[in-house]
Nucleic acid binder design. Structure first.
Lengths: 344, 344
DNA sequence: GTGAAAGCGCTAACAG
DNA sequence: CTGTTAGCGCTTTCAC
């Protein structure tokens, strides 16, 4: 049976000779409604194929039980795992997620923010695009009193709660591991250092070198978009004209992969001729040969932590929330690509 | 300047000594409003940090310019690429996306459907969970007159538009390629055949063998959850007790990877001792060694095609839409894992 | 070109 | 325990 118009609580009320309020209360399991009425209403609702109109209810309540989430790209394991972590906390708490992609562009990010504000989401979780410098749009979110939590790509220009990896530590640990393996001539291959995480990783790298009396300034640095192709092109060209370093530390597994391919094309054996380390523990990193030494970031945990912070802010009676920071410790994963075979 | 309450068109109207209707019309660029008024309103709106309340406007208009999308898992490249394809069509057309994950469970899928109906989305795009057999919840969507398009994991139990890969053809092409390489003793490694796509791939495989007078019935078949671990466990055990086949055709790159690892543990050379083919062209498939022969499914195209179908149905005046089917042709990608080295 | 008024479907005082 | 009433913020006829 298909009716042109959707069933409303009015229709149910009419059919049952009661009022809309009673129906509404029954559907929401209000304590003061008799069990008999509830059963009756629920039965009728099913019969009439009633589906509550969330727009109306949200409008009335002044907010939707919806959380907006803005990520640079959804098709990166790192981010999609974070999304999973977020859902695992927010769904049980009764929230739905609207996911937006900024595609690493500020303009799109600003659009996304507007959409989310317009939809009166209960809170926003976001990771900034690579381009983002100015944070006026974040200020706007705060002006609208919408709880906001940043994760991974954060900003310290505003007092906002955030969840970060200790990228400095991750890179530090990796560098120490590499030094301990006996490598001394490093190449740094990083993403743009205006992005916090890449800057922090670089700092950790530098600190580790300095702590062991090595001079980072004398070593090769390459900075570019963190993709396989960019790294491959650079490395091919580099090896054409220069002597290979002992070890390449790339701040992305994709860059590491590019470096590996360039080296293998040149006939260099990894790790015996040159070692390569990555960052992020992408799924492919343990499937390739040699298996890639990298850093695990516990992306799902990041999502959970961010969701928990947001949840607290959304549920807080208090209007002014003190921004909090959660810093997660990444874990070094040593695999084949940086450990010389015994016989050497 | 932060006000407790959000700015509404009423506030703007009052500030400008005009009515809310005029403000509304100005904001929506109504043709009969003078340019002067429009400028004035827009200026004031910015000044007062106005953000339209989408809930109110949607309620009034009876629908949101939002499309719901249900996928089994978001952290699979296949699905996240489809999502990208969908966004590339739907965003420019003015729609937002609510993305839900069924996590391969019918119960969650049904929940998702309810949420989307409640939010009065303008349309729904979905790929069924592996568990889904009964399609009552799809019927419900149709009863609510919400345009619906299925993709990839479709059902033919109801007249619904859908976008599919020609999985039979993909598997057929692959099998013919393998036969042409000289392999005759096959092992089939597939996902559960109650799922359309796996069944179809099996059909293509079988047809190809039969067309070349090979007997599929006499060959090894393994069916299991399409993951690396499942395939690895099976293959380890199999090789312990049996002679290796000439070639393994896995309906998922992950399964292929599991098979490869098991073979390599046993000291079998790929493809010289045993060839392995996969399906889906996962990113890692061209990063591993040997590079994996597989089938590209053009996931982004699937998303685009589904979004286009949905868009037409959403814009159609006509209430009864004739369901349409788009079938995409996958492409065989021959790499190292199935092509014997010359010297053999 | 703009105003007045009604209503989308639901919830939440306030009554009784 | 249930009914009455008002209103969330916006759009859209119908006036003028």
């Amino acid at each position: 049976m298909v009716s042109k118009k959707q069933t409303t609580i009015q229709d149910i009320a009419k059919a049952l000779n009661i009022t809309a309020s009673t129906v509404s209360r029954a559907m929401n399991d209000h304590p003061k409604i008799s069990q008999a009425t509830k059963n009756m209403v629920i039965e009728k609702a099913r019969e009439m194929q009633y589906q509550p109109n969330a727009m109306a209810s949200n409008l009335r309540k002044g907010k939707a039980n919806t959380v907006g989430m803005i990520v640079p790209r959804i098709n990166r394991h790192f981010f999609s795992n974070i999304i999973n972590g977020v859902e695992s906390i927010l769904n049980p708490a009764g929230y739905n997620l609207i996911i937006c992609q900024s595609e690493e562009r500020v303009s799109k990010e600003i659009e996304n923010v507007k959409t989310l504000i317009s939809n009166r989401v209960s809170g926003i979780l976001m990771s900034l695009s690579i381009e983002t410098q100015d944070v006026k749009h974040l200020q706007k979110v705060m002006n609208h009193r919408i709880p906001l939590v940043l994760f991974d790509r954060v900003s310290n220009k505003l007092p906002i709660s955030c969840v970060e990896n200790d990228d400095e530590l991750g890179a530090y640990d990796m560098t120490i591991h590499l030094i301990d393996q006996g490598y001394t001539n490093f190449m740094w291959m990083g993403g743009p250092r205006n992005v916090f995480i890449y800057k922090n990783r670089y700092c950790g790298y530098k600190k580790a070198l300095e702590s062991r009396k090595l001079k980072p300034a004398q070593m090769q640095i390459f900075e570019g978009h963190p993709t396989l192709q960019v790294a491959l092109d650079f490395m091919r060209n580099y090896l054409e004209h220069n002597k290979a370093p002992d070890v390449v530390f790339a701040t992305s597994d994709y860059m590491a992969m590019g470096a590996i391919q360039a080296c293998q094309e040149k006939g260099l054996k990894i790790p015996d001729d040159i070692a390569v380390a990555g960052y992020a523990n992408e799924p492919f990193s343990e499937l390739i040969s040699p298996k890639l030494t990298t850093v695990e970031q516990y992306s799902e945990e990041i999502g959970k932590a961010a969701a928990r912070l947001l949840l607290e802010e959304m549920l807080s009676e208090n209007d002014e929330v003190i921004p909090r920071k959660t810093i997660l410790r990444p874990r070094l994963i040593v695999r084949e690509s940086t450990v010389k075979s015994k016989q050497e």
